[in-house]
Each structure stands twice: as structure tokens, then as C-alpha cells.
Computed example of a mutant assay.
Amino acid sequence: MAGSRKFVKASTPPNSEINVTPLVDVVLVLLIIFMVVTPLLEKDIEVRIPETEETPVEEMPQDNSQLIVKLDADGTFSINTDPVSPDEYVNKLRRMLAAKKKEDRIVFFVANDQANYGKLVAAFDGAKQAGAFVLGMATEDIPAAAQAAPAGDPGAVPAPAPAPAP
């Protein structure tokens, strides 16, 4: 009888269902850990915001040496309200910036909300190639009074018209 094997048959078939109790225990422990740790992770981010004040249009300093590049929704450039083709954009901006000291070579950009982002980046690159020292983004459009540029100075921004009296 040494050669025969005997097997013991289980009285119940094997259970193939997942035992949920340990799973629930682990999930509850993780939940408690996250509930304790989450308030510790919330840190205030300090942001310094510049103070602003409303200045009436007639009291604003008149600086006629600013360069404002506007990008319309259809992709056309204009420098101080003068339309410029993309081919001559860099050369015209270079001529305007050449007359200024390095620290005064500031170019502001105003882009339409529907303007192509790639064209705006190309305008930034073109301004840097033209010799701009500082690039700035304007959040508001050029005032309506500034749309008519004087013919004498192509690089000048016209003074805004005074506000009407109430």
C-alpha cells in the first residue's frame, strides 16, 4: 500500500467570492489618513498685487514715445494704429526703436481675444529681433480717441481726448 495515494475531499466547494471585510478596513484607514493630512497640505500662497487707482483721462501723463503693437482677430498687425504687413513689421519696428535709448525700448502689445496665439508669439519674437528691451501686454484696447495718429510722428501715440463733462 505504499504506492497508493489518498486524497481528502473538502466537504464544501471552494469559495471564489472576494472577502470584503479587509477591503473595507483598508479603505476606511486610508480615508481617515487623507482626512487628517488634507488640512495640513492647504497652505496660503502669498501673491503681491500692485495697488491700483483710477486716474481720469485728462490727468494721465502724455507720453508720445510709447509703441503699441495691436494684433487683430484676422491676424493683421498695426503699430500705433498704422497697419503693417507681417513682412515689414520687424523692419518698421527696428527703425522706430533705433532712435531710442536701450532702456526706453518698450513695446506694448494689445491682442484681440480671437487672435491666433502663434501670430502673437511671432509678434513678440519680431519685437525682440527689432531690439525691444521690454515687452508688455496691455489688458485693455487702445482708447477710441487714440485711433487717429498724427501724421508728423509715426512712432507717437496720440494724446487721449478729455472726458466729456456731465
Rank of each mutant, 00 (worst) to 15 (best):
S4G: 13
P14D: 05
S16T: 13
E17I: 06
E17A: 14
N19D: 15
N19A: 09
V20W: 13
L23V: 11
V26G: 10
I32M: 13
V36D: 02
T38Q: 12
L40D: 02
D44Q: 13
V47Y: 09
I49H: 06
E51W: 05
T52S: 02
E53P: 02
E53G: 11
T55C: 09
T55W: 14
P56A: 08
V57C: 00
V57Y: 00
E58F: 05
P61H: 01
D63C: 07
D63P: 03
N64H: 09
N64Y: 05
Q66P: 01
D74L: 08
G75F: 04
T76A: 12
F77A: 03
D82Y: 15
D82C: 00
V84C: 05
S85L: 10
P86E: 00
P86V: 03
V90I: 15
R95D: 14
M96Y: 08
K101N: 14
D104K: 04
D104W: 04
R105L: 03
I106Q: 01
A111C: 01
D113Y: 02
Q114E: 15
A115S: 12
A115K: 04
Y117K: 15
G118C: 03
K119F: 07
A122Q: 11
A123W: 04
A123P: 01
K128L: 11
K128M: 11
K128Q: 10
Q129A: 13
G131R: 02
V134D: 09
L135G: 03
M137I: 12
D141M: 06
D141I: 02
A145V: 07
A146I: 04
A149G: 08
A149N: 11
A149H: 10
D153V: 02
P154A: 01
A156R: 09
V157K: 03
P158M: 08
P158S: 13
